[in-house]
């Protein structure tokens, strides 16, 4: 009887036991650092001596009152919206292209995957060299080959020229993943729907608009949300190419967070920035998912 009772208990808690290792890692690698950062954000924290002194809301009040942080937050929104928007539009077009049969389609698909196979830092390094004002490939091509400029352009020398290039690189590295996800979703749309539409006389554009897009809409919306979170927090591209300069003109929230933490050793303020990023993205995500589920209803 006892053995049977023990077996029943084990059966009931077995799912929990299987989930425990994952829960342990998620808590340890995600929730614990977030809680830790939230606590540190209320302190002045010297990471070297590990001394902490409570300062209450001082770090948050500084951030909200400092024009530089406000400007950087606005720039982060622009960065995220343009990269995600640009990626989605290009990925939709590419997925449509890859959904049809054409010669050497496998080769073309492999080429599109390449940016995804390369690390972000390496991609950023390559573009940094390509955009070098004295020895970069772009200026050489424009000046020596095409003769459209007669003086080298400092692409990364000002915020006005550097920021668009950063957005371009952000889109370039985001396209492969988004394209593949959308393509997979497109290919799961039942083919007989297209056949039925074609029999009714619908054109290709009409089929795309009334069959394809509605079918893949949930996936598009999810990729937008995932990309939004990833791009908002994207560090390597901007850090490698410009380090947020010149004059903070390409800084976003994560680069200023990094500077506060590791250059100025201001871990309290850096933690406050991290918490604000987390709260902002959490609110955006919840609001977005609620909106999504309402629309589906």
């Amino acid at each position: 009887m006892n053995r049977y009772f023990g077996y029943r208990i084990l059966q009931r808690i077995r799912p929990v036991l299987f989930l425990l290792p994952s829960a342990f890692f998620i808590f340890g690698l995600v929730y614990y650092p977030v809680i830790n950062a939230a606590i540190i954000s209320f302190f002045d924290y010297n990471v070297l001596s590990r001394e902490m002194s409570f300062v209450g809301l001082k770090n948050y009040l500084f951030i909200f009152n400092e024009p530089l942080f406000i400007t950087i937050f606005q720039r982060t929104i622009v960065w995220t919206v343009t990269v995600v928007g640009g990626t989605t539009i290009v990925a939709l077009a590419l997925a449509r292209l890859l959904d049809v049969q054409f010669p050497m389609k496998a080769v073309v698909r492999s080429i599109f995957i390449l940016p995804w196979a390369t690390s972000l830092a390496l991609s950023a390094m390559l573009y940094r060299w390509a955009l070098n004002s004295e020895r970069g490939l772009l200026n050489y091509t424009l000046k020596e080959v095409l003769h459209v400029i007669d003086q080298n352009v400092g692409w990364l020398a000002t915020g006005q020229t550097a920021f668009p290039w950063l957005i371009y690189v952000g889109i370039w590295v985001s396209i492969p993943f988004t394209t593949l996800v959308i393509l997979a979703s497109m290919q799961s749309v039942p083919r007989d729907l297209y056949e039925a539409c074609a029999l009714d006389g619908a054109s290709g554009i009409q089929r795309y608009r009334y069959i394809t897009l509605p079918s893949i809409r949930p996936i598009i919306l999810i990729t937008i949300l995932v990309n939004f979170i990833a791009v908002f927090n994207s560090f390597p591209i901007i850090w490698v190419m410009t380090e947020g300069g010149p004059v903070n003109e390409t800084d976003i929230m994560v680069t200023i967070l990094y500077k506060e933490a590791f250059k100025f050793l201001n871990f309290g303020r850096a933690s406050a920035v991290a918490v604000l990023i987390f709260v902002f993205l959490f609110i955006i995500s919840v609001f977005y998912l609620i909106m999504l589920s309402r629309q589906e209803q």
Binding site: E134, N152, G154, W155, P246
Partner: peptide
Amino acid sequence: TQPNVTATDLPEQLNLFKAGN
């Protein structure tokens, strides 16, 4: 000075002199 001064870090500065620029 070379144009695009704000894009010139130490390695690039040394490269300019090395290359005779």
